[in-house]
């Protein structure tokens, strides 16, 4: 499986993502600078976590308008899988590739801890290696992860099975509406999520629960 990681000024989880992709897929991803107007042809494009452009204006707002993102949007429309984690999720909403917005955490504090995620839809390219309803451990680290969407958008997401992950009961760390932790686009090839699956892929780091997401994409590519 071939993958690419887009690097923005202020990205800081790109190394973790590159390592996770390398370890789980066996292939080292291509790292693409955000000013590059064309991404390589790959099976998965990843927007990593961090603080692109120092969160100026709004989290992800300026990164979403970078040259690489125009090509990400083109490729997403053509069906290429795109994963945005944390700041990458914020960038995807700002780019209009996912609906809604990520707002300041309801309690106004930066949250850095492990949470539990429930797999709501396991019939996706990103979750097929998990069981439906399975609860996995996953770290979060963010200040603006409070997902918001208007009632019509929210109803569409819920009715169409586009909520991929929810914070398990009682563990919502940021006030996110309907405990939403990760959502898909309409076609199902774009996933945005606040938690960091790339940080739970080695036994030495305390668990392997994040591997399933990358293994899901490998399975989807092979299918």
């Amino acid at each position: 499986m071939r993958s690419a990681v887009v690097l923005f000024p202020g990205s800081n989880r790109d190394h973790d993502m590159v390592k996770a992709l390398h370890d789980v897929t066996g292939n080292r991803p291509t790292v693409v600078w955000h000013q590059d107007a064309t991404l390589p042809d790959v099976d998965l494009i990843v927007l990593p976590g961090g603080f692109s452009y120092g969160d100026y204006l709004r989290c992800g707002a300026i990164a979403a308008r970078s040259p690489a993102m125009l090509d990400v949007a083109r490729k997403a429309k053509a069906g290429v899988r795109v994963l945005g984690v944390c700041n990458g999720f914020q960038i995807l909403t700002e780019a209009g590739l996912l609906p809604g917005a990520l707002m300041r955490n309801a309690h106004l504090r930066f949250v850095c801890k492990e949470v539990k995620l429930r797999v709501i839809n396991n019939a996706t390219d990103f979750t097929r290696a998990y069981a439906k309803g399975q609860v996995i451990r996953c770290p979060v680290a963010h200040h603006d992860g409070n997902y918001f969407a208007d009632p019509e958008t929210l109803a569409r997401l819920e009715d169409d099975g586009r909520v991929a992950f929810r914070y398990a009961e009682g563990t919502n760390p940021n006030g996110s509406i309907n405990d939403i932790a990760g959502i898909l686009n309409e076609a199902g090839n774009v996933l945005g999520m606040m938690p960091h699956p790339e940080n739970l892929i080695e036994a030495l780091h305390g668990g392997l629960d994040g591997r399933g997401l990358f293994e899901s994409v490998i399975q989807a590519v092979a299918a």
Binding site: L57, R65, T93, F148, A149
Partner: peptide
């Protein structure tokens, strides 16, 4: 519309 405001919120 294109940058300064996020019209979702």
């Amino acid at each position: 519309e294109k940058l300064l405001a996020n019209t979702v919120i």
